[in-house]
Structures are given as C-alpha cells and as structure tokens.
C-alpha cells in the first residue's frame, strides 16, 4: 500500500444530455448548447475529502438528470488501499527492459486513486477520476512491507 505524499484533485467529464443537465443551474440560457463539460477541482490535502467531494458531485449530477437510475461503475486503485498482495501484484508488471516494474493500474495511470463511470446503456455519459500529483514511487519491497499483516 502506497501513502501518497502529494495532494490530489478530481476531474469530471460529462457529455451530451448529462453536460447540459449539469450546467442548467449555472448557465440556464445556453446549457442546452453545451455538448461536453469538464470540471477540474482544486487540490485536496486529504484523499478522503477528495473522494467524498467527487461522490457528492456525481450524486448531484445524477440526481438532477435523467441518469438517476443509470449504472455507476466505481474502481479503486489497489496500490493506495489495504489490499491482498495478489491485487497489488496485479497492479504492477515486471519490466524486462529496466529490470524493475511498472504500474498497470489504473489503465497505466498509477497516480489515479479512483475512477467513476456513469453509463446509460452502452453510452458513457460521465467519467471522473481522482488523481494524485506526481511523486516518486516507493520500492516494491517498501510497498510489500507496508501492506503486510503481522501474525500473532
């Protein structure tokens, strides 16, 4: 498990009707003219605060749109949560060219803490992610050591 030393932020992208619904309070005169909107958050020192804020924003968008019953897919990066070692190993891959390892989670973006997708059928209407500001990753042995459960 990695504890990030940097702050984090979130980004939300809404498209189509979700974008217009998101903006209807903000710019009522032209919300229906907007095809896509991206909101970028300020930095959070606490990743818990970032998660709560993102969740509240996504819920707000869903609540005021036709997306109330839409499917929400949430995914967390196992590198930043207490997980079993298999999940952590699955989030990394040995890189033969360097002799080290590279991160495969989440979709190759190791700084991503969480992703959220809101689907309407097969159509992706809202995508969001929380991401840490870049930092130097600890060694594999440190990640393993910080994730070990002591046996009694």
């Amino acid at each position: 498990m990695i504890t990030s030393p940097t702050s984090c932020f979130y980004m939300i992208k809404a498209e189509g009707e979700a974008a217009a619904s998101m903006l209807v309070d903000l710019v009522p005169g032209c919300a229906s003219d907007i095809d896509a909107v991206i909101l970028l958050s300020s930095d959070f020192d606490s990743d818990i605060s970032a998660i709560n804020s993102l969740d509240a924003t996504v819920k707000h968008i869903k609540d005021q749109t036709y997306l109330v019953d839409a499917e929400v897919k949430e995914e967390y990066n196992p590198l930043y949560f207490q997980s079993d070692m298999q999940k952590i190993d699955d989030a990394m891959m040995l890189d033969a060219s360097t002799g080290g390892f590279r991160f495969t989670a989440m979709r190759g973006n190791a700084y991503a803490l969480k992703t959220v997708e809101v689907m309407d059928g097969d159509t992706l209407l809202i995508s969001a992610k929380i991401e840490y500001r870049p930092f130097d990753f600890p060694a594999y042995s440190e990640i393993v050591a910080s994730n070990q459960t002591l046996l009694n």
């Binding site: 974008a19 903006l23 903000l26 032209c30 003219d33 991206i38 909101l39 970028l40 958050s41």
Partner: peptide, 27 residues
C-alpha cells in the same frame, strides 16, 4: 460543485455564426 477550480466546455455545432456567438457570449 464545491471545490471546482476550472470549468471547460465544448459547444454543439451551430449552422449560423451569430447564434454561436450569442450562445458563447451568454455563457
């Protein structure tokens, strides 16, 4: 939208430049 620092949008397409400008100015 507490915590929002930047907002970026892309509009739909308009047939007419004036309508596009009016919408953008409104925004």
């Amino acid at each position: 939208y507490n915590g929002t620092s930047d907002i970026n949008v892309a509009s739909r397409e308009f047939d007419d430049y004036n309508n596009c400008l009016i919408s953008c100015k409104n925004f």
